[in-house]
Design a protein around this nucleic acid. Structure first.
Lengths: 190, 190
DNA sequence: TGCATGATGTCAGTTACTGACGCAACACGT
DNA sequence: ACGTGTTGCGTCAGTAACTGACATCATGCA
């Protein structure tokens, strides 16, 4: 038996989300969270850079999914018109697929984030970073530099639209069809 | 002569921006700012909800410009295909025109915001609110509810793209032509 | 003259976060 | 078995952001 229970970070994440849902983000202090887990505040801040990070530090994976999705497409298709947008859409579709079975967790998260501007902002910054990285991937694989930001913006906007419909829907729905529909909406507007 | 110098909020805004540029946002404390102006910390927090707000509280005007731009267009054009996008673009163009003579201030601001994720996030939240408000305006004026979010997303993405080119350019440029070019980029991708 | 108002100051808190240091288990190489 | 480094945590003292309660005092109006 070890000196401490293992998985401290995971237990902190769990306790934090529980408390945020129970009494709200602002009304939950870091002391509350660490008390529930049985560690000190210092331990919390060793695992997470700040109080917000406890909700965001697992998202590094998603950027990989996004970029892999784009590269898979780019390696299978030769340069040509529309390749940038198609690759960006392949990336968002890959990300959407990875979300597909986690609707409830995404809903809980959305309910916390939506009401706290600072958290919402952090989410948007994260998405902004994804877009920048995706843009780089496109350019590195032969998409014209002028086309890349536009393609990424269109694909990302469609994903954001589909995602918000997905998490706010009353009855369970599938994300990928919503994304496909959103993509089509963007096509049809011009 | 009054008891205190007038325009406290303005002098705080000015001192804050100066200090943020001189030594950086994180290295500047609220005590530094109020010391330069000659008031107490409590006064600062009566004018601004938090330290970040000193950089953002003047932006309420811009939403009005955006919405007025959209309504002016909508009142002059009857329903028809492409009306939503055109109205959203009229709105972003109006906003761009209001920026046109403030390039240096926008550059200074950009240099502060770009390096502090929390500030960047606040900017993105603000833009998100603008988009939501613009969307409402479009729908209230007869744009189909399915078209509005797409039109707004496309117009907003173009503005973001043009704005970033504008503030990061070495030599002075005009924002409106950049926006027009960005709009054209979005048109040409589909 | 009297009195309400508004912008500020004072003071004593709470909460988020950090640096420096110490301690005890584990994971090794010898 | 023995040292030795590393890892995960605790303790403590401190800074900075922010808040509530209350005092102060010029201004303007009754």
């Amino acid at each position: 038996m070890s000196r401490w229970e293992p998985g401290t970070a995971d237990r902190l994440r769990l306790a934090a989300l529980e408390l945020f849902v129970e009494r709200g983000y602002d009304a939950t202090t870091v002391d509350d969270i660490v008390a529930r887990v049985g560690v000190t505040q210092r331990t919390f801040f060793r695992h997470f850079a700040d109080k917000e990070e406890v909700l965001f530090d697992e998202d590094a994976v998603m950027q990989d999914i996004l970029l892999d999705g784009a590269q898979a497409y780019l390696h299978q298709h030769d340069p040509g018109p529309g390749r940038g947008l198609a690759a960006a859409r392949a990336a968002t579709a890959a990300l959407a697929r990875s979300f597909e079975n986690e609707r409830e967790r995404n809903r809980a998260r959305w309910n916390v984030l939506a009401h706290i501007p600072a958290l919402h902002g952090r989410q948007l910054v994260k998405q902004d970073r994804w877009c920048a990285a995706l843009q780089h991937t496109l350019v590195d694989n032969g998409v014209p530099p002028a086309e890349a930001p536009v393609a990424v913006a269109v694909a990302a906007s469609a994903l954001a639209l589909a995602y918000s419909q997905w998490v706010t829907a009353d009855r369970p729905r599938r994300l990928l069809p919503l994304l496909t529909a959103a993509d089509a909406q963007f096509d049809s507007i011009l």
